[in-house]
Structures are given as C-alpha cells and as structure tokens.
Nucleic acid binder design. Structure first.
Lengths: 136, 136
DNA sequence: AGTGGTTTGGTACTTTAGTATGAGCTATAT
DNA sequence: ATATAGCTCATACTAAAGTACCAAACCACT
C-alpha cells in the first residue's frame, strides 16, 4: 500500500516534469512536437507495462505464497510443519525420519497430530487441505 | 503471433493519428499542449497495462494447463487417470471405488499400475511426480 | 523451581496401502 | 476369427500408515 502511494507520487512528479520540459522544448523550438509526444508515449507505455507486471507478479505470488498465519492458527508446530513438507515430497514416514534424524515412531506421532490439526483422515487428504489453506 | 502484429499495427496507427491531432491542436490553439500531452501519456499508460495483462495471462495459464500429451506418453489409461485424480483429492482406495462404482480391488489394481507407470513408490510420491509432469 | 509446550520415542494394535497372480469380460483392431 | 488392450474383481500376502497411550527429556518463561 505504501509502495503504491510512493509509485504514483513519483509518477505524478514525472508527469509534471515532462510537462515543463515539453513546454520549453516546443516554445524554444529546439525539438519538434512529434518527437516530444513520441517520447512521452513510449515512456508511459513502458511505465504501464512495468507497473502492471509488478502488481500482477504480486497477485500470482500471493496465491502461491505460504500463509504462515494460518499455520499458527492451526497450531501446527515447527517440527510438525517439517513433517508436512516431507509428506508433500512424497516421502514415507521412515524416509522423513531419516531426513530429520529422528525415529519413525516420532514421525508417526507428528503425522497423527498433524492429521488431527488439519482434520484429515489420511496424509493425502492432509496435502489437499494444506494446499487449500495455502500452507504448503 | 498474428495477433501481436495486428495489435502493434493498430498501435502505430494510433500513434500517427495522435501526432496529427496534436499538431493541429497545438497550431490552431484550440487545446493547450499540457492537455494533449497528458492525454497521450494516459492513453499509452493504459495501452501498456492492457497489453501486458494479456500476455501475462497467457503465460500463467500455460503453466497451469494439463499436459495431456504427457499422460499418453506415460501410457496412463482413462480409468487410471480418474483414479489419480481421486488420489489427488485425498480419497482412500475404498472411497475412490465408491466414487467410480467399482470395488476396492479394482482401485488397488489401478493404483498399482499407476505407481509403476509414474515410477513412484507411494501414492503421495505419485502426486508429486504427477504435479511435476503437469498432468494433475 | 515449577509450569506448559514441544520433541522425542517406545509398545501394541488396527487399518490402509500396495504387490503378485490369475481370471473373466468387453470392445476393437488385424 | 483371434489377438490385444483395458477394465473388472478376487485371494493372499507384505508393507506402510495411522491410533492410542505412555513417558522421558528439553526449552522458555515466570
């Protein structure tokens, strides 16, 4: 939000600056009006592209970004979240245990708690729910 | 490609038109130069936004589209693909069977064949691979 | 020093998942 | 007509996954 205001502020400043430049240029006859207008058109054309790319990028990223607040709301601990990531990579409990240097029993406990917190019956369902919540 | 050429052609035409309009407007003194320049700036600003939005939209859709050719390449049958979708919804074999009106045994067969074709050890891994291949 | 939350891990058990194999049934292409 | 491929289903089995319960160790906070 603050960035948007800043960008538009700079945009207005640039616009005013171009006004003055073009006025003097046309009056003094140093440059012809076509050239000034073409320059302005091109500059604003690319400003439009640039701003749009930024805002669209934010949107697409926003849907892909992880909702860390949701993870907290669901009361999922750091370790449980690591296990969830392991599941999303298609690993077995044993493999997740090896990756995190703990026993398979521990992973089972984490998975069981995760399923309760995500209100899922299976790990595949947990993945689906986690995706809906944008936490993976 | 053809559309791009058309759009840029129209863009150039619009530019030329604006040149003429602005020239006459400034010479005849009907409009002041600030107004003309501001109009041009705004018009091209929005043209930039519009064109960018279109091109970006195509890109984001392309990456999300399902690669049906890849499904064929992997030799995945229609029924097997339906089972894969069931898995991605987090359903159990039994639930997938109920959804497709076949027995759990049948689903097990399909799943087993799917895992072989996707070169996966588990259904969760199959999901991960299927996502990489853009087939779900 | 005690409390609460997290992490760890074990046992014992039930439930799913997955494999291997065989077999019957269709539609379709040769 | 007879392969061929896909879909169906069953049995019997092994391997994971998941539940329930318990308990110890740890860390941060008061």
């Amino acid at each position: 939000m603050k960035k948007t205001i800043l960008v538009f502020g700079l945009l207005i400043l640039a616009l005013l600056l171009l006004f003055q430049i073009s006025k003097y240029a046309i009056i003094s006859g140093d440059l012809n009006s076509e050239f000034v207008i073409a320059t302005i058109a091109i500059v604003f054309f690319f400003i439009g592209i640039y701003l749009n790319k930024k805002s669209l990028h934010k949107q697409t990223n926003a849907t892909k970004e992880i909702d860390y607040k949701k993870i907290e709301d669901l009361d999922i601990s750091k370790r449980e979240y690591e296990v969830l990531l392991g599941i999303s990579e298609g690993l077995s409990n044993k493999e997740i245990g090896e990756k995190l240097f703990v026993s398979e029993s521990t992973i089972k406990t984490h998975v069981s708690n995760l399923l309760t917190k995500l209100n899922a019956k299976r790990r595949t369902q947990a993945l689906q729910i986690a995706k809906d919540f944008n936490i993976i």
